[in-house]
Nucleic acid binder design. Structure first.
Lengths: 342, 342
DNA sequence: TAAACCTTTTAGATTTGTTTAATTGTTTGA
DNA sequence: TCAAACAATTAAACAAATCTAAAAGGTTTA
């Protein structure tokens, strides 16, 4: 590399001061039009690269926004991220992405790094067990936080997620209306608000329909295809012989369907399966997956907007904002056929 | 936020100079042990946050590494990213991630942003049509670049990718050895080195086996499940009645198998299908997908190491490094059954 | 006792861009 | 005609750290 080109390089080349050059490049009305044009031309000619670190030292706006989620590989988060990216691209913010894999330490580490870099704000899907203090760490140091997908107790920052209890109730009612009575729930845990809400929605729907809620019908576990695939064995061996499954998400559902198919049964006919999220691939799975749309794109878009609003000092959107899920009925669910049991 | 805590805040509180505090926090041997301990204690007590922008202004190392790929949602890249992340986590680098969706403009934009932030280096899977000048922009401004998955003409920076010609030849030979003679190739384009290499590997394997290479057996297209799913229609309607398909990657293969199943045929029996990449889900697809392992984790790990080496001024690894793919045989391919045609 | 020699600490320059108050020259209004 | 207003530019302070050369303080040696 030849020589670092900086403001003063341009200033010297034109016989001006760095102040003028700085103002000109930022289109300040204080600089005469002719001068500004000369400066911009020279900047391009010399291949000038704006030094954001130096600038942000003075302005205390870095143009960096952090985003942490459990796992960006998970298509659920990927869809949210895409929405955030689309929204943020319009403002001139760069965004830094990280996984926390539900490690509170890794998450705090990210928050600290972001603070060191002077991050303007952070959007996070908090790791299981996130203490309120970690969110306050960000907020207290002037870096506003927005939560997505999960809440944190005692924390009242803007939070966007789907209405989970309502969503699983939708799925459960759909299966009940098809005549199913022994309905299992596959995947998820009780350690998150989401987990408790989804189970509550499922259990309440059963109760309202006068059906028994049997804890044996619950198979908790990770939220991956692999886990759904492995759950198939337990599911099929269950003494209560369930005929339908409400799955934690589409990944678990697709895994479960693969496992059912591997065992020689036909998912969607012998066993009805519902997913959750309505990922792109739900529609092209075999059979096409009946699922609950969870508003990922809305969550991402609203979260990004709420943050940008906060940075611009305008409106506040503190507290919880629930997005109403919607049912997407496809071929993985069908009426209970009393004869075709197993 | 109360009051920004900086080095001088700590220095004043202890009656020391900022120089001493700075040295102490970085564990310099120049500072007495007692002093260092007092300083570190005070720093924690006051909730001091290290300001990397100020520091990097002086040191010209920001601790930021950029990574741009086509699409982080794509599991192929996701696996590479995971390997990069694992490797980079050990050194204290933060990494900034971006998609370019094969837009050269978006990619250049990212490079420029990274330069503004003082990025230490960049790992990229270059967008289709990336001009050499964009790589040089980074290199000329002191930001070393590493290429993964694809090469850029005229550019000799360290480049890591699978040996694509060899890989598709493996898959094609596997199908030939099962007795297939009408083998289609699904997905991909001619606009990338990867595309040309994969087609060459497939075509050469056919030629060596004395089989004809019929351009009608090639169905190019995007590299997604959706695209594979849609290609099934064309594939099944092909007048040459192919009995097997070499797919661009696992996503296309799984999509194609879904499409075949939807049409009432049995993938893996009626039609043999091979994937490429050996993603996690290849093993749990139905039927389990025969595929070519493409060394994503190696690519990611090597790329990250090469960059860290370059930053530490040690060894150079310029030029192309090919990783040898390996065959993973599962249930989606089977011997040609002359009777069971369609 | 002074010189030499450590060890520890610090003053002050430096990094690059932003911002404010001041400067210089020009125009306008009374 | 002259003070006031205005436009364009700039000097200098500033942001928060790092770095270098030198000072300060203490101990050992001659």
């Amino acid at each position: 590399m030849a020589q670092k080109i900086k403001l003063s390089t341009i200033a010297e080349a034109l016989g001006l001061s760095t102040a003028t050059v700085s103002l000109a490049l930022r289109d300040s009305p204080l600089v005469a039009d002719v001068t500004r044009d000369r400066i911009k031309e020279k900047a391009i000619e010399l291949g000038y690269i704006y030094n954001r670190r130096a600038a942000s030292l003075r302005t205390s706006r870095s143009g960096i926004i952090g985003v942490v989620v459990h796992d960006i590989m998970n298509p659920f988060y990927a869809e949210i991220l895409k929405a955030i990216e689309t929204e943020l691209d319009r403002s001139r913010q760069t965004f830094i992405l990280s996984n926390h894999y539900d490690s509170v330490d890794k998450q705090r580490n990210f928050i600290e790094t972001l603070l060191q870099l002077g991050g303007d704000g952070v959007i996070m899907s908090p790791a299981i067990g996130t203490p309120a203090s970690d969110i306050r760490l960000a907020e207290d140091n002037g870096m506003p936080a927005i939560l997505i997908a999960r809440s944190v107790p005692e924390i009242d920052v803007p939070t966007f997620r789907g209405d989970d209890a309502y969503g699983t109730a939708l799925a459960t009612n759909h299966l009940i209306s098809l005549g199913h009575t022994r309905i299992a729930m596959i995947g998820g845990t009780d350690h998150t608000s989401t987990g408790r809400d989804r189970y509550a929605g499922y259990a309440n729907a059963l109760k309202k329909a006068g059906l028994e809620v049997d804890p044996q019908l619950r198979i908790p576990g990770p939220r991956t295809k692999q886990s759904g695939f492995e759950a198939a064995v337990n599911f099929l061996a269950n003494p209560l012989k369930p005929t339908a499954a409400v799955c934690w998400n589409d990944l678990v559902a697709i895994g479960l369907m693969n496992g059912i198919a591997r065992a020689g049964l036909v998912p969607g006919k012998d066993i009805s399966v519902t997913g959750y999220d309505d990922l792109e691939e739900a529609a092209i799975a075999t059979p096409a997956l009946t699922t609950v749309w969870n508003g990922q794109s809305e969550v991402g878009r609203f979260a990004a907007r709420a943050l940008l609003d906060k940075l611009n000092g305008s409106s506040e959107a503190d507290g919880l904002h629930l997005i109403k899920p919607e049912m997407r009925i496809r071929q993985s669910t069908s009426p209970l056929n009393p004869g075709a049991g197993r």
